Simulated assay, not measured.
Amino acid sequence: MKVGIMSDTHDNLPAIRLAVEFFNREGVDLVIHAGDYVAPFVARELSKLNAPLKGVFGNNDGEREGLREKLGIKDEILTLDLNGLKTVVLHGTDERVVEALARSQLYDIVIRGHTHRHGIQEVGRTIIINPGEVCGYLTGVKSVAILNVKEREIKIVDLENGDILGLMSL
């Protein structure tokens, strides 16, 4: 199973298009969005994904009813089983909550966004994945992550030049 991970798209349609094209080329089985879509009109680009989309609300998602209707987003925290990997997804606005989820060791993977900074971090047996920002507004880097469950690998990729920004084996 290959999982595409994105966050902080912030209405940047050309950047969302890059992410969708990348995930479709990679043949991901699922795409997870860690929040901050912002407005429902992003559904037009996200609907071009060849894989199902699951996600959570972020702190800048003002039109929640529209996002709920167009994308099926319902929650601020989502738990998933990714072929045996217990996973929790949240936007990560409160660092204390992200840290508590990781330190609890209840999850193999914590997926978060909000900071716009990509990274992979180990906390005991738990891995925290932040794919960075698709929009590129704060860091200038448009990035996503791929979690390859079968290969037991996480990589963060720059959407504009294909550079690998982070890599970790599980």
Rank of each mutant, 00 (worst) to 15 (best):
M1Y: 08
M1S: 13
V3D: 04
T9S: 15
H10S: 07
H10F: 12
N12M: 13
L13I: 15
P14T: 04
A15F: 06
A19M: 12
V20G: 03
V20M: 03
F22V: 02
F22G: 01
F23T: 04
N24D: 08
N24Q: 08
G27N: 09
G27F: 10
V28P: 03
D29T: 05
L30A: 12
I32F: 12
H33C: 11
H33A: 06
Y37F: 15
V38K: 07
F41S: 10
A43T: 02
R44D: 14
L46M: 10
L46R: 03
K48I: 00
N50I: 00
L53V: 10
L53P: 11
K54N: 02
K54W: 08
G55F: 07
D61C: 09
E63W: 13
R64T: 15
K70Y: 12
L71F: 06
I77P: 02
I77E: 15
D81W: 01
N83I: 01
G84F: 08
L85P: 00
L85G: 00
K86V: 04
T87R: 06
V88L: 08
T93S: 12
R96S: 14
V98F: 05
V98N: 09
R103S: 13
S104W: 06
I109C: 01
V110F: 10
I111Q: 07
R112Q: 13
H114V: 07
T115N: 04
R117I: 13
R117L: 14
H118C: 08
E122M: 14
E122K: 15
V123D: 03
N130Y: 00
E133H: 01
G136R: 12
G136K: 12
V141E: 14
S143T: 12
S143E: 04
V144Q: 05
V144C: 13
N148M: 07
E151H: 09
E151T: 01
R152P: 00
K155V: 11
K155H: 11
E160Q: 12
N161H: 10
G162R: 07
D163Y: 06
I164D: 01
I164N: 01
L167W: 14
M168E: 14
M168C: 03
S169G: 13
